[in-house]
């Protein structure tokens, strides 16, 4: 090649140009955005980490570090630890009870609704679909007030309390289940069912042997998701509460923030966060395991798509 002789003819960029280019660097990442992003990440996570840290404070302050104690505010303190304070212990049990029951009711109900709405055609079906979408955009306060009023004035045979709370939780989590399961249904398509029918499976066998196994990842995700959003819920639980014996963890945390909170509240909140994150973590791992091998053929944006519930 003649390139060797040619090379001398062309001036390489000068040092000044190089420095200018480094500062303006048209190919690099914009440094301002990098800073903003990491500041955001820090602000969103550091306070929570600090709050969790103070649940391990040896002293009674939530703002001044007085030494490390692993279990004082969780187990040891006889009067005000999560286990020692009957109100905190009861709130934890109530939250678990609500989340567990909600998960077991909302998931099957939502899976059936998703299947029905995805395949049922007609005016009634569109109307039902429309109703299903509403809880996703209705502010919790409006839902809380209306559920409160209906239990107090119309369904008077169900008193405010655990039953009413569970019914409220199922109502707002149902639509999330439908969105998750329907997303999966669309991505599966109908080819497998048609293949099953073609191979002689009855409709019932197709549902049981083809549709249900293919929906399992979505069903499992729904279970965990419902558990997580139920355990985090404050508004609906508060409006349908029967008083302090129906208090959940978020209600306890809420009412303590206005007083002089002890690290035991931080401990209680930490337990709640741990449960939510565990549920979501399990859901993620199991979902990945169950859908392994599908990803290469699937569409991109898995993580944001998994959060598809928010993509109204």
């Amino acid at each position: 090649m003649t390139a060797v002789t040619e090379r001398r003819r062309i001036a390489a960029p000068s040092t000044a140009q190089r420095i200018r280019n480094w500062i303006l660097n048209p190919w690099g990442e914009p440094r301002g955005l990098v800073v903003i992003t990491w500041i955001y990440v820090a602000i969103s996570i550091v306070p929570v980490v600090v709050a969790i840290m103070f649940s391990f404070n040896a002293g009674r302050s939530v703002t001044a570090w007085q030494g490390f104690s692993l279990t004082r505010w969780y187990l040891d303190d006889p009067r005000s630890s999560v286990i020692g304070d009957p109100r905190l212990q009861h709130a934890l049990l109530q939250s678990l009870k609500l989340a567990g029951l909600t998960m077991l009711i909302a998931t099957p109900l939502g899976v059936m609704l998703a299947l029905g709405l995805a395949r049922w055609r007609g005016r009634l079906a569109s109307a039902s679909n429309f109703i299903m979408l509403f809880p996703l955009v209705t502010p919790e306060l409006v839902m809380g007030v209306s559920l409160f009023l209906v239990f107090v004035n119309l369904f008077t045979f169900i008193p405010l309390g655990t039953t009413a709370q569970v019914m409220g939780h199922v109502t707002f989590s149902l639509s999330y289940v439908v969105v998750i399961v329907r997303g999966r249904l669309f991505s599966i398509g109908r080819q497998y069912e048609e293949a099953a029918a073609d191979l002689g499976a009855t409709p019932w066998e197709t549902l049981r042997l083809v549709v249900l196994p293919l929906l399992l990842p979505a069903i499992f995700s729904s279970l965990m998701m419902v558990f997580a959003i139920s355990i985090d819920d404050f508004v609906i639980s508060a409006w349908l509460s029967c008083g302090s014996s129906c208090d959940t963890v978020p209600i306890r945390v809420y009412s303590s923030t206005r007083g002089a909170p002890l690290p035991s509240i931080n401990a209680l909140a930490t337990v709640m966060v741990a449960m939510t994150l565990t549920a979501i973590g399990i859901a993620w791992v199991v979902h990945r395991y169950m859908t392994r091998g599908e990803r290469r053929t699937g569409k991109q944006g898995g993580m944001t798509q998994a959060m598809g519930a928010f993509d109204l």
Partner: peptide, 30 residues
């Protein structure tokens, strides 16, 4: 391939739930 009534039947429990605990409560507000 599925009987026509199957999908509406699947949807009914959820729809009834939403009517009783989402629409009716709103009527209670009114």
């Amino acid at each position: 391939m599925y009987p026509k009534w199957l999908w509406p039947v699947f949807a009914v429990p959820g729809v009834v739930w939403l009517i009783l605990l989402f629409l009716v409560p709103f009527y209670a507000v009114i």
